[in-house]
Design a protein around this nucleic acid. Structure first.
Lengths: 339, 339
DNA sequence: CTGAAAGCGCTAACAG
DNA sequence: CTGTTAGCGCTTTCAG
């Protein structure tokens, strides 16, 4: 590898000082057109490119945005990240991705992302802001924006989970279902708990009882947002005596709905003829399978999150800005009137 | 934000020089246990953390690995990235992700990733190495490894596409199909062209003619790796007169197979009863849909790619190392004997 | 075992 | 308009 060319080399070749070189490279106004051109030509000829670390150190910022994301593999995060990327591409910032295996293990990557000189701003995705984390974030030099979670002190972008849970359940009730089950991940997941509250709202509004016997919640790693957990829950549901069996189910996450759908199919129970099913998220496979669900605008959430972060980088003094999207009911083929 | 603490602060508090502080922080052996302890305690108390850019500049490396990936959104890439991440997590390196909208637009992100002082190594995913790119990479200070593409001069990890295409087609032929269509993205895509070659191999081996009328290839953006393109291809296939219609199809990518499957369903053609279908990749939705396909070990490919890169960082002189995985036939419900 | 000092490559006053 | 000179925060000889 040929010795890297620095501004000193350019300065020498162009017979100017390094200060001048730096000026033209950062197109500072106070430079004569003649030298400007000369320096540019030399830089070009030598194939100069600035040294990122040196610039970061001198400028005291990195042009890097860090995203901390649990379980990178899920469709939800893919979409969010796609939104981030697209919005970021126009901005000259690059993306540093810190993934963790679960929501619990997010602190280490977060710590790394927060390290001095690592990045200019932080995106915390789907990570509940515990008091400890809030304190840590508050005294960090870089601003943070929350995606899919909320805290009064920080910019955030999220979705109205309670309302989504309500609409999912109401849709089922309006179709005529009197007994609708809830399949959900661990109640320790804040969004899940909110969706459950919405479920309860809809039931109450329709004067339907909330029967804990048909609320299937899952614990374990990744808060139970898995196809497997949905599959198991549906098996339990189908094991209920005919008299007690619900005619519909709201799964508080599409992955779970997909698993539940698989369990129904394996048990020979037809969806929606014998059982209606609605999910939450609208991840890609849901379209293939024809799952009715509540759509979160994941891509837009990612875009907006970056917009907010860039804005705050520009104007640090702004009060925290919160945006809550309304989830939208996407009607497909997994729901129908009860038999 | 409180003024950041530097090694100067620690040095002062601990009454030593910054050189000593630096030594204990990098656990250099030649330091007395007494001062070592003292410095550590002060650093701890002050909540010191090193400045990433300053370290990078002084050390002349970043502990960052850059991955350049087209169409980040696809499941294939997410799995690869998950492999990268998991293997990376143990290593102390962080991941810088550069995404582009398509294979063509990969040069800009690649350029950024290659900038001096940006990262220590590069992962080029699913990007054909044109001569120009090969030259660029060869004179870059950072080593690169290719994932899902090949070039003799660089480490690479890929899959035997030709063999996969061969096995997919042979599977269909062995079931008794005499007329099997090929649904593929643009032939400009190298992996697609290889899979097509495998398709031709299997046909030739069985003394079956290769009928260009039932080879449906797609052009356009993202090389046609889309659900839509698969859908359209299947529509064209189904529009063929009954006598000319194939009884099976090999789609050279799962996304396309999924789209094709949708088109069949929409046309009332049952899979596999009336038409067998096999895909390539084994992305997640394929399992939901029951698609028979050829699996690429995406996660493992990602892991291995990082392993190779870290290895090369350690031993730059090594000759290029190439690994080719054999795709594995995953039997599901989309293939059967012809009616 | 420890300190002084010279960088790493670039930016940004401050003079002129 | 341009050059000199301090840094940015850390690592690493080189002496001692």
């Amino acid at each position: 590898m040929p010795a890297a060319v620095t501004i000193y080399d350019i300065a020498e070749e162009a017979s100017v000082s390094i200060a001048t070189v730096s000026r033209v490279l950062n197109d500072h106004p106070r430079v004569s057109d003649a030298t400007r051109r000369r320096v540019f030509r030399v830089a070009e000829r030598l194939g100069y490119e600035p040294h990122a670390s040196a610039q970061s150190l001198a400028r005291q910022h990195t042009r890097l945005i860090a995203a901390v994301v649990p379980m990178l593999t899920s469709y939800f995060f893919m979409e969010v990240i796609r939104g981030l990327q697209d919005r970021l591409a126009e901005s000259g910032f690059d993306l540093l991705v810190h993934a963790s295996r679960s929501v619990e293990e997010v602190d280490r990557p977060m710590e790394r992302a927060l390290q001095r000189g690592r990045s200019d701003g932080l995106l915390l995705v789907s990570t509940p802001l515990t008091p400890a984390r809030a304190i840590r974030l508050a005294r960090a030099p870089a601003p943070a924006v929350l995606v899919d979670s909320f805290h009064p002190d920080f910019d955030s972008v999220s979705v109205d989970n309670r309302r989504g849970g309500y609409e999912a359940t109401r849709h089922l009730i309006e179709l005529g279902h009197k007994r609708v089950a809830l399949i959900m991940p661990s109640a320790a997941s804040v969004p899940a708990a909110e969706r459950r509250a919405g479920y309860a709202d809809a039931l109450a509004e329709a004067n339907l009882p909330l029967d804990e016997a048909i609320v299937f919640s899952t614990d374990g790693e990744s808060h139970g947002y898995t196809r497997r957990a949905g599959y198991d829950a549906m098996q339990r549901l189908l094991a209920l005596p005919a008299s007690a069996r619900p005619t519909a189910a709201f799964a508080a996450a599409d992955v779970m709905a997909l698993g539940a759908n698989g369990a129904a199919r394996d048990a020979g129970v037809r969806v929606p003829e014998e059982l209606s099913l609605v999910g939450f998220d609208d991840v890609e496979p849901s379209a293939y399978v024809g799952l009715t669900t509540l759509r979160q605008p994941m891509y837009e959430m990612g875009q907006l999150a970056i917009a907010k972060l860039l804005r705050r980088l520009r104007e640090p003094g702004l009060p925290p800005s919160h945006t809550t999207f309304a989830p939208r009911l996407v009607l497909r083929q997994s729901t129908a009137e009860p038999a």
